[in-house]
Nucleic acid binder design. Structure first.
Length: 255
DNA sequence: ATGGTGGGCAGCCCA
């Protein structure tokens, strides 16, 4: 079973790329972030024709998440419990005996900004929720755009990035807090090419220079992590004309 | 150091 995550940065703009990528890769479950479409505008029919059911949690202009799956999706959750948040950044569902939690973690903009404090509060509330989810659902996958590079090896130029948003120590500590619940970054269970990243800024030729960060993650509970057989970043879609600034990440499980 | 690009929606917000 293949489970993927992809920040598409506008589903409207990226729909054709997504459909072609689905046809070429046939993942079983796909978590999308930054769909930027309201639920009424979600392209249900096109995805259904491609063989995918969909759950979505969208808003106008910003954010928005969706889960696509070949098998039925059930038990949707649209928010972190007991955390007031008008931004649509969370979508959880059960599928094929797994619990999938799709996240678009706040970017944080700049260390010490209001958006940064919101990001840290958001991650704390997320940790409380995921602790409970792990009790309810031992087969848990938490994936998406985490907007945090876990370690310096996930950063193209750690010296230049030190202390910045996406790599700052409080953000990394919050991410470690999630992992210490028993969620494994499955990408690091396998040998990977050096300088593996999942996001490259649109500016300054970042992709061409491979000036990226690895901020799109697939975390799996212990019971699932041991069944993970591969995890790779697919740079293909990032090299297309009019690409998203993120590449898809695909994890394979023997289930 | 700044600003470089891209998406959304209407001159600026967000990444």
């Amino acid at each position: 079973m293949q489970i993927a995550t992809w920040n598409v940065n506008s589903l409207r703009v990226r729909l054709v790329q997504l459909l072609e990528w689905l046809a070429a890769n046939s993942p079983d479950i796909v978590a999308l972030q930054e769909t930027k479409v309201t639920d009424g505008d979600f392209p249900v029919a096109q995805l259904e024709a491609a063989g995918y059911r969909a759950l979505f949690n969208g808003q106008k202009s910003y954010n928005g998440v969706a889960i696509l799956a070949r098998a039925p999706l059930s038990e949707p959750a649209l928010a972190i419990p007991d955390f007031e948040d008008p931004q649509r950044r969370v979508l959880a569902a059960s599928c094929d005996g797994l619990r999938i939690v799709n996240l678009y973690v706040p970017n944080g903009q700049e260390v010490a900004s209001d958006k940064y404090e919101y990001k840290l509060r958001w991650l704390r509330a997320l940790q409380v929720w995921l602790r409970a989810e792990l009790v309810r659902y031992p087969r848990l996958v938490v994936l998406g755009d985490f907007n945090v590079a876990p370690e310096d090896r996930d950063v193209h130029d750690p010296a230049a990035w030190i202390g910045s948003v996406l790599v700052s120590e409080p953000e990394r500590a919050a991410l470690r807090g999630l992992m210490e619940l028993g969620l494994n970054d499955v990408f690091r269970r396998f040998e990977q090419p050096p300088q593996s990243y999942s996001w490259w800024d649109y500016r300054a030729g970042s992709f061409r220079r491979n000036n990226g960060l690895r901020i799109d993650l697939v975390l799996a509970s212990a019971a699932l992590a041991e069944r993970c057989t591969a995890c790779r970043i697919d740079r293909g879609p990032r090299s297309l004309e009019r690409a998203s600034d993120h590449a898809p990440v695909v994890a394979s499980f023997e289930i």
